[in-house]
Design a protein around this nucleic acid. Structure first.
Lengths: 379, 379
DNA sequence: GTGAAAGCGCTAACAA
DNA sequence: TTGTTAGCGCTTTCAC
């Protein structure tokens, strides 16, 4: 069907040719006038703008992308979009994207590497310019079904130190080390670490942080590590068992968000005087932690920083920077609230409503895991 | 630059022409073989598949979209991606999309209609096939800067009953009515409704549900409505004031998620015996509500249903269904846990750990707001 | 059943 | 500065 007339049947959006026809110029001139890449002089320019306005012309981004070979779209891959932490990341990325003229195609992997590979394949078919991913596993890209060619990609929060990609994560080894040390300093000796598993670098690092602190305090013999899996319920039942032992811990360090929630649930269900009989140090921030009593002390990650730094790294890659994979490790904060107290019934009351925040720093606690070393990481 | 050779410089992804050349057929045949729309016979078919495999050919979805005039992409617009409730919706939508061969372009409006309009404009430029939006205001599309032509669009959770679009939402008028009636039935007379504002239909409906229940119990004179705005902090301080009055309420009905969180925070901060001195009925579900004591009674929306029904409505529209705008109103559940008790110190203990769930139904309580009537709605 | 050719809407070369 | 032309990679007539 030919469609060259100056007027266009209603219902079909106007194209650049329609604008050109109405303004009495060539399509190229319209393109140039609108993009501003090449100057178009006064009168013509005005004519173009007028035609655009009159016709309600909107450039077809897809056609433009096809021609230019770039989409100004980034792919976002996270394990679970409902998870508060990942949702926070996505929120921040969206803010940055929207102010940078990018859109985001977002998908979830469900923590499954095969699904992850399939979803990424689908994003690649759409010719995204870049990829931001919270990987389902440390061996991201090792999957046999994995796409052979990826666009510029940054791995966030997980799989820190992957040899093929820029990775940005939080220094949770150090954070756990410092959190644990704090518990020891206020007098705890029986400290249980509650963690999902040892299946990821970032989890192993947390365990390592705990071990280091215990070892330095000559408490290695009293290490108690409880694995609860990736769900809140798993963590709850696992820690409940530990709390029911004849020699229960005086403090629980919950080393993930779900571990924190599970521990709170277990402690409440057992109606343990909390924090009187058991202290709790949690992980990550959520609004309920400062709404219910006792307010939860926790190690907090800065989602904003993570989002910002990973975006910047991706922008550099998309701009063609071809340097070695970078590793960006971010500091965490240890925020002391009400759920951590010295052990024993005679607890001196701590001030309520005042938060004590300690910045954990890579160089001030556990030694030897600055930027250049591996593996050290993340959530 | 000509590029007709049978081998292709590494680094540039193979095109359909490369596959055609290698298989000794035409591009059209490759297209047909892969899409399966038109039959391609045995040998050729095998040759094509072999070439695809050998070259690692992946169809360029963008080029295909441009040609076919459809993108198999839907736009998702929510006020805030970090909000648990919206994040849950997005999560569900992503699951459905991924199993339906769609991808999602997701953006946030920040509750601002102008931003919303701009972001939608940008999605339209990318030629999305459909739009799922949790609108920033009831007058969605009334904004002067609003795109004149939208793809098939479904309004979710907000702006129920909009005349121009399919809308799907939860029947929160009825839910609040029933929740309030429950509080009255167990003996409360001083019931404060804590709500963001009256600026949206769904909020006004909640107020209406409350008023109806109070009126039917001849308690209209005791109506207490506290506005806390859209933030947790606003709700906290607003309800704190109310709780500090010389005649504090015996029950608080928090009619949104942030109101619930704010109320919990206020009650805890004031160290009111809770639920002994004041009952709390909340809104929406979040995991902490069943982790901390007392477990929070709440009106819960089924995010899954909302996602599923809205997706189905959109699918119908995208398929070309041109019927009148539909209105889909979903039932909510009233889940009774520990935070709601009869007033007065002599509280009989309710069973712990057992949830009593009541399905609220449009026809079993407040009258006259079934599907056909307006305005009745939503979150 | 298969191929040649046109064209989706845009922009980059090249010419004028 | 501006217009003409040639595609980006794909699918779809339309002949054969």
């Amino acid at each position: 069907m030919k469609n060259q007339g100056p007027t266009r049947p209603l219902g079909r959006p106007p194209t650049i040719r329609d604008v050109a026809a109405r303004a009495g110029v060539s399509p190229a001139t319209v393109s140039n006038a609108l993009s501003g890449l090449r100057g178009v002089t006064g009168d013509r320019r005005r004519a173009v703008l007028e035609a655009v306005e009159a016709l309600g012309y909107k450039s077809n981004h897809m056609a433009s992308s096809l021609r230019r070979g770039e989409t100004r779209t980034v792919g976002i891959v996270v394990p679970d979009l409902g998870n508060e932490y990942f949702a926070g990341l996505v929120r921040q990325w969206e803010k940055i994207a929207s102010t940078s003229g990018f859109e985001m195609l977002v998908v979830a992997s469900g923590e499954d590497p095969a699904t992850e590979a399939r979803r990424i394949e689908s994003l690649i078919a759409r010719r995204i310019d870049g990829l931001l991913v919270v990987a389902a596993g440390d061996d991201f890209s090792a999957n046999p079904a994995f796409p052979e060619r990826l666009p510029p990609t940054v791995l966030v929060d997980r799989a820190f130190g992957h040899p093929d990609f820029d990775t940005v994560a939080s220094n949770s080894l150090d954070a756990v080390y410092r959190g644990c040390r704090h518990l020891i300093e206020i007098g705890h000796r029986e400290i249980t670490l509650l963690i999902a598993s040892m299946n990821h670098i970032h989890l192993r690092d947390r365990v390592e942080g705990y071990r280091r602190a215990m070892m330095e305090a000559r408490l290695s013999a009293r290490e108690r590590i409880v694995f609860g899996g990736g769900t809140m319920e798993g963590c709850r039942s696992a820690i409940e068992q530990d709390l029911r032992r004849s020699d229960p811990p005086t403090a629980v360090f919950a080393a993930s968000f779900y571990a924190t929630l599970g521990a709170v649930k277990a402690i409440n269900a057992l109606e343990l005087g909390f924090p009187r009989n058991v202290s709790l140090l949690g992980f990550e921030h959520s609004e309920w932690m400062t709404a219910v009593r006792p307010y939860i002390s926790a190690v907090e990650q800065s989602v904003d920083d993570l989002a910002r730094r990973s975006w910047d790294a991706l922008r550099d890659r998309m701009a063609g920077n071809a340097s070695e994979p970078k590793r960006i490790l971010l500091d965490l904060q240890l925020v002391l609230r009400e759920s951590t107290r010295p052990p024993g019934a005679a607890s001196r009351e701590a001030p309520v409503g005042r938060e004590v925040s300690r910045k954990t720093r890579s160089d001030s606690g556990a030694k030897g895991h600055g930027k250049g070393r591996m593996p050290v990481a993340a959530r």
